[in-house]
Amino acid sequence: MVKDNLKIVEENIRQACLRAGRDLSEVTLISVSKTKPVEMIEEAYEYGKREFGENKAQELKEKYEVLPKDIRWHFIGHLQTNKIKYIIDRACLIHSVDSLHLAEAIEKECVKRDTEADILVEVNVAQEESKFGLKLEDTLALVQQISRLEHLHIKGLMTIAPFVEDPEENRSIFRQLKQLSVDIGAKNIDNVDMSVLSMGMTGDYQVAIEEGATHVRVGTGIFGERNYDIK
């Protein structure tokens, strides 16, 4: 099932790139494996996938320990400061930094471990109360503050768009984040690179790609519906 789903998702990505006049190499598919068993991740791995996403720090740590070490783990969930220690040497990219407090806590852990961390700043473009992330107008100020932390490297922006029946409803969300990334990139801030735009999930990743997403986070479309009772 997983391999068949991956073929469909890959074809959808290819078609979206064609529509947008983009090269397929510009888009990274992150297979979101949260709550899913190791066996399903192994099936995707055997198919050739190496980029996986988790939203719970401890779950990422547990899977990291038992799966091949060439997997690139993305942390995409809300990160509590007391859980940073579980992912700091394991996640290749932290997608969900939304405060200076969290950034400073990650910096502190990096100093302790003598390592560095690549991060994305999370923006709540739609300003949904149920979601984490900054307002568009507050993002630049936080980027400037975080840029001064020498062990953290800002690689771009991330957003979680609203759940909608029609993905077209989220097009303006993705367009706004893309424009913000261009505006921040134009300021040439030291230690800030706007090359990553993490946006789009199972319901709307094709629209996100058309609007400039470099990383799409697809879970249900690959692994099927989640059973949250198992965690």
Rank of each mutant, 00 (worst) to 15 (best):
K187I: 13
A186M: 04
D70C: 01
G221E: 05
S172C: 11
I71N: 11
F174P: 12
I146N: 05
I189D: 01
I230L: 15
L6P: 01
A16E: 02
E165Y: 13
E122V: 11
L157F: 09
D183F: 03
E42S: 04
I8C: 00
S198Y: 04
I13E: 00
I230G: 13
D89V: 01
I209T: 12
T115V: 05
L134D: 00
Q176W: 00
E109Y: 09
G200F: 05
K135F: 13
A103W: 05
D193Q: 06
K131F: 01
D98E: 12
Q206C: 12
L29S: 06
M1E: 14
R90V: 06
E10G: 14
F75M: 14
L180T: 04
F163C: 14
S25K: 14
S25Q: 14
E10I: 06
V125H: 04
Y47A: 12
V121K: 11
K135G: 10
G185R: 08
F163H: 14
M158S: 06
V66I: 12
Q144N: 14
H101Y: 15
T159E: 05
I173P: 04
L79W: 02
I173W: 05
S99L: 08
V2H: 11
I8R: 09
D229K: 15
L142G: 01
H151R: 15
K131Y: 02
A213V: 00
V9L: 08
N170T: 05
L149K: 06
G224V: 06
L134G: 02
E169R: 15
T81I: 09
G48N: 02
K112R: 15
S147I: 04
Q127Y: 06
E150W: 08
T115S: 10
Q176E: 07
K49V: 13
D183T: 10
V125M: 01
I106T: 00
V182K: 15
V27L: 11
I146A: 10
N124D: 07
V207M: 05
R72E: 11
T139R: 03
D204N: 14
N82W: 06
G21I: 02
K49C: 12
E122W: 10
Q80C: 02
L93S: 03
M199D: 06
T35K: 09
L134E: 01
N5S: 13
E169G: 08
V196I: 09
D138S: 10
P162N: 08
T214Y: 04
D138H: 04
I160P: 03
N227G: 11
C110L: 02
V196L: 03
